[in-house]
């Protein structure tokens, strides 16, 4: 029983830390209507950069988190430039960056596919040393704290003039261009900010699990989409922008809790990606099928 409790606590912590990434996915997918596949690469990049900063350069763990976020932003900007200046479709631009990042991430880690952080300080270990809390409680507090800061930042930012113009870009590009906004700029900015959050999340996960791995971002975009879908199902009734952002993080937590439970029930961990993909596919299919069914049902022969 206590084993279950521990694995659930672990799942919640993971959910919160990955939730920062989900916020990034939310910006591109929900606000700008772009499915940005850079995420898989920029998440791993955040982790790799963070690990190398701490281990090889002995940079403060908090500062390395900032560097991880900056690295993610740079990755997002590359996708943004490919998509806006060179008009490559967003999905393809994201894939190109993601594939390129695989090699770059290996270079960052000096050719190794894995960098452990066993004997070095992390933000979690520092926090534990300062407060005497348990490992999980420390990670949870840090995760929730950062999530609150990021949600507040996004709530503020998307209320500003630039942020409003970005939301309008996702709504109707013709309209916002007619109001004098360069939509290339807003899209580039959105991709940059989004991947900054993704890189930050990668750095957090790396410090929490005490290693960075070249494959740690694989499938991140699907996890992000699944979390958004779950959040939408649970809290879709709430309309305010703040609650939408919160629901992205909550969705992430629920995703990892579900994951922990099905793994405990004996599911092979290798099947987890299939489950994530299925969740997203079903969530995307259901509304379309419902609509088709409704149209079919509403037809009457008539004419008499």
């Amino acid at each position: 029983m206590s084993g279950l409790l521990v694995s659930l606590q672990d799942a919640v912590v993971q959910g919160v830390l990955w939730g920062i990434m989900v916020l990034g996915v939310y910006i591109t997918y929900k606000l700008l209507d772009i499915a940005d596949l850079t995420v898989d690469g920029s998440f791993a990049m955040g982790g790799c950069v963070c690990a190398v900063m701490i281990l090889n350069f002995h940079v403060d763990p908090w500062v390395s988190l900032g560097v991880a976020a900056a690295a993610g932003m740079a990755a997002g900007a590359v996708t943004g430039l490919l998509h806006t200046i060179f008009e490559i479709p967003a999905i393809l631009a994201g894939i190109l960056t993601q594939i390129g990042l695989w090699s770059i991430n290996l270079r960052i880690m000096g050719g190794k596919s894995n960098v452990p952080l066993l004997k070095t300080d992390t933000i979690m270990s520092k926090f534990i040393a300062a407060t005497g809390l348990s490992k999980q409680a420390a990670a949870m507090i840090i995760g929730i704290g950062i999530a609150i800061v990021m949600i507040s930042f996004l709530y503020w930012f998307f209320g500003t003039e630039i942020g409003s113009a970005m939301r309008a870009t996702g709504n109707n590009q013709a309209m916002i261009r007619a109001q004098g906004v360069n939509t290339n700029w807003t899209k580039l900015l959105a991709l940059t900010i989004s991947n900054g959050l993704v890189g930050l999340s990668g750095g957090l996960v790396c410090q929490s699990q005490k290693y960075a791995d070249i494959g740690m971002g694989t499938g991140a975009i699907v996890i992000g989409l699944a979390a958004i879908v779950i959040g939408d199902v649970l809290m879709g009734k709430l309309r305010s922008f703040a609650s939408k952002l919160i629901s992205a993080v909550v969705g992430s937590v629920i995703y990892f809790v579900i994951r922990a439970m099905v793994l405990r029930m004996g599911m092979d961990a290798n099947d987890m990606k299939l489950l994530s993909a299925a969740i997203v596919a079903v969530a995307l299919c259901v509304p379309v099928m419902m609509n088709k069914w409704r149209i079919k049902k509403s037809y009457t022969e008539g004419g008499e």
């Binding site: 409003s164 113009a165 939301r167 996702g170 109001q179 004098g180």
Partner: peptide
């Protein structure tokens, strides 16, 4: 912009051609 409020749309238009900060 369909997904935004009437007043938000107006605020976007009120700043037409101005720098947005």
């Amino acid at each position: 912009a369909a997904g935004m409020e009437i007043q938000e749309n107006m605020a976007l238009a009120y700043r037409r051609g101005q720098g947005r900060g």
